[in-house]
Amino acid sequence: MAGNIVRRVWWLVPVSVVAAAVVAVSGISYAFDVKNKACAEDFESVALSVSGVVTADFTCSSSFGNPSEKGTITLDAKTEEEAVAVMESVLRAYAETDMDNATTPFVDYVSEDGTIAVGPPDAGFNGLPSLRQIRDHYGLQEHVG
Rank of each mutant, 00 (worst) to 15 (best):
M1A: 13
A2Q: 15
N4C: 11
R7C: 07
R8C: 06
V9S: 10
W11P: 01
W11S: 01
W11C: 00
L12T: 15
V13T: 15
P14K: 08
P14T: 11
V15G: 10
S16R: 08
V17Y: 13
V17Q: 06
V17K: 05
A20S: 13
A20D: 11
A20V: 15
A20C: 14
A21F: 10
V22K: 12
V22N: 05
V22C: 08
V25M: 12
S26H: 10
S26V: 14
I28S: 05
S29D: 15
D33S: 10
V34W: 10
N36F: 02
K37M: 00
C39R: 04
C39I: 00
C39S: 05
A40M: 03
A40E: 12
E41Y: 02
F43D: 01
F43T: 00
S45I: 04
S45Y: 05
V46S: 02
S49A: 10
V50Q: 07
V50D: 11
G52V: 06
G52S: 07
V54E: 14
T55C: 08
T55I: 01
A56D: 07
C60E: 09
C60Q: 04
S61A: 08
S61M: 09
F64R: 11
G65K: 13
G65H: 11
G65S: 06
G65L: 10
N66R: 14
P67T: 13
P67A: 14
S68T: 15
E69G: 01
K70Y: 01
K70W: 05
G71R: 03
T72Q: 13
I73Y: 03
T74H: 05
T74D: 03
T74A: 09
T74G: 01
T74E: 07
L75R: 12
K78N: 12
K78S: 05
T79C: 05
E81T: 10
E82N: 07
A83C: 06
A83R: 02
A85Y: 13
V86K: 05
M87A: 06
M87E: 08
E88G: 04
S89H: 08
S89G: 11
S89V: 06
Y94W: 09
E96Y: 06
M99R: 13
M99V: 12
D100R: 06
A102S: 13
A102F: 07
T103H: 06
P105V: 01
P105K: 00
V107E: 00
Y109C: 01
Y109A: 01
S111F: 00
S111K: 02
S111T: 03
E112Q: 04
E112H: 00
D113Q: 02
D113I: 00
G114P: 07
I116F: 05
V118M: 02
G119A: 14
G119D: 14
P120F: 02
P120R: 08
P121R: 09
A123G: 05
A123D: 10
N126V: 10
N126W: 09
N126K: 09
G127T: 10
G127Y: 12
S130C: 08
L131F: 05
L131E: 09
L131C: 02
Q133G: 02
H137L: 07
H137W: 11
Y138I: 10
L140I: 15
L140Y: 14
Q141G: 03
